[in-house]
């Protein structure tokens, strides 16, 4: 079995959100839904010296992620129907004919990926652009990234960077063993860090 996965180079990412925009366009997503998230995290403080000058140790960084097509997916485990399943390519997707739209995958996924679309009557999610991949193409988001910060491919051939993503705002990789590898930037804070906050709440929620 092949296992596809993503690689994200956080040192290259500029938070431009082209990946997200391209995915929204290609999959024709409604405004309140996205398969790819770009979280902006920030932390630190500002200090004013006696002479009125400012210094800051503040920092900002971005984490762009979609479904991590986990080895140990939380979504498939809770799915009552088996609609949420891992394919031969390791990509996790929804069998729309079996899905009852119970939303358990949505509740369980720690990457905020699946979402129940009530109009469609089933859950929807990043499927790794499976049909493109099957046709030998790259996912739309990967090809869109102007900074070449995203890669996609069979994990054994994929850049591994600093390993499976263990960066805020994502869970520790031990939770679902994500096939999402990352190269961390200098400002990165580890999973579970409480010293940084989400800076772009209106955008990601």
């Amino acid at each position: 079995m092949t296992q596809y996965g993503f690689y994200f180079d956080a040192t290259r990412c500029t938070g431009c959100k082209t990946c997200e925009a391209a995915c929204r366009d290609y999959h024709d997503l409604p405004l309140d839904l996205t398969y790819r998230h770009v979280y902006e995290l920030e932390g630190g403080t500002w200090i004013q010296a006696a002479d009125g000058t400012w210094t800051t140790d503040s920092y900002t960084f971005y984490t762009s992620f979609a479904c991590s097509h986990c080895d140990d997916p939380a979504c498939t485990q809770v799915c009552p129907t088996g609609a949420m399943h891992k394919g031969d390519d390791g990509l996790v997707s929804v069998d729309t004919h079996r899905c009852i739209g119970c939303g358990y995958c949505e509740l369980a996924c720690p990457y905020g990926n699946p979402h129940v679309d009530r109009d469609k009557g089933h859950s929807v999610k990043c499927d790794g652009c499976a049909s493109r991949v099957a046709a030998g193409e790259q996912p739309v988001c990967v090809e869109a990234c102007s900074m070449r910060a995203l890669e996609f491919g069979p994990v054994e051939k994929l850049n591994q960077g600093d390993g499976r993503a263990a960066v805020a705002p994502l869970p520790d990789p031990s939770v679902t063993t994500p096939n999402f590898y990352i190269k961390n930037c200098a400002a990165a804070q580890p999973s579970g860090s409480t010293s940084c906050v989400v800076a772009n709440e209106a955008e990601v929620k």
């Binding site: 431009c16 959100k17 925009a21 366009d25 290609y26 024709d28 869109a144 102007s146 070449r148």
Partner: peptide, 27 residues
């Protein structure tokens, strides 16, 4: 839907006139 420049050298350092989020959201 829109694709952008995916011809030529896709590697880091190669030139592709990849559209930004605005161009990708032209629809």
């Amino acid at each position: 839907y829109v694709e952008s420049d995916n011809a030529g050298d896709a590697s880091f350092g190669g030139v592709q006139a990849r559209a930004c989020l605005r161009g990708r959201s032209i629809r």
